[in-house]
Amino acid sequence: MKRILLLALPVALMTACNNTPAPAPADATPPASTAPAAAAPVDGAQLGANHWVLDTATDSAGKRIDALFARADKPVTLDFADGRLAVDNTCNRMGGGYTLAGDQLSVSRMASTMMACADPALMALDQAVGQRLEGTLKISQLDASTLVLGNAAGDVLRFRGEPTAETRYGGPGETVFLEVDAQTRPCPHPLIPDKQCLQVREVQYDDKGLEQGKRGEFTNFYDGIEGYSHQDGVRNVLRVKRYAVKNPPADASSQAYVLDMVVSSETAKK
């Protein structure tokens, strides 16, 4: 019996040696990493090239966020410029700083004007916008026509792009201030019979916002001002951007005017 055990011992040792895994070759390729790839950086210039108009907004359950559509005729609109996000068509003008990192858009706490709106839904719109835009958002799509943002709560906001005036006219415009008189006047035009023209004169301010010089006479203003709707009987001072139009048609102006903001308004005395 002892002899059988002694013979079996070398066989067991040989079997154990044969089951030892062979060492990996020195030039073996290590296994591929399973870490997720870094997100591609977002084109910040594309963000600034458009006004972004809210088209759809849904919560984590896929339900429409009705609170964001209090102004059906004027959807919430975002503008990105110089590290600042501006929000228009809310009850108050809203804005805050933003930064980009990969596909992450971080928006600081936004400030706003303090105007009260009679419509409760419109008053609630400011809060609804702030809740969904402040903080870190993921940009899941950004191209010339679409911006899609998602937040940590699962809300998804889809915007359509409308090119800014800078994009359409190929560069930054010149800022000018125009006073628009309360009433339009008939003005001669070779192609438009009975044309009525805005009555406009330029206003000069220094870098501290103090008016300089004396205002001249009102003159016929044959161009339009994009974004401005004149109301008879109301005199306005406007801040506008003036752009050079490249290769305008023979019967069109070589300049384009786009409303930046209404500086002041007053009802004219009758």
Rank of each mutant, 00 (worst) to 15 (best):
N18Q: 12
N19M: 15
T20V: 15
A24G: 00
A24K: 00
A40E: 06
P41M: 10
D43N: 14
H51Y: 14
L54Y: 07
A57E: 04
D59K: 04
K63D: 03
R64I: 10
R64H: 03
V76Y: 06
V76P: 04
T77V: 11
L78W: 03
A81G: 02
G83P: 01
G83W: 08
T90H: 00
N92R: 01
M94G: 10
G95N: 08
T99F: 02
S106A: 15
S106K: 14
V107P: 00
A111C: 03
A111K: 01
T113N: 11
A116F: 12
P120G: 06
A121M: 07
L125F: 08
A128M: 13
A128R: 05
R132P: 00
D143M: 03
G150E: 15
D155N: 05
D155C: 07
A165L: 09
A165W: 04
T167I: 12
G173R: 09
F177T: 05
F177K: 08
Q183S: 10
T184Q: 13
R185M: 12
R185N: 07
C187S: 03
L198E: 13
V200Q: 07
V203M: 08
Y205N: 05
K208Y: 08
G213Y: 09
E226I: 03
D232E: 09
V234Y: 06
R239N: 05
V240F: 04
K246P: 00
P248M: 13
D251Y: 02
D260V: 11
M261S: 14
V263L: 14
E266N: 05
A268P: 00
K269M: 11
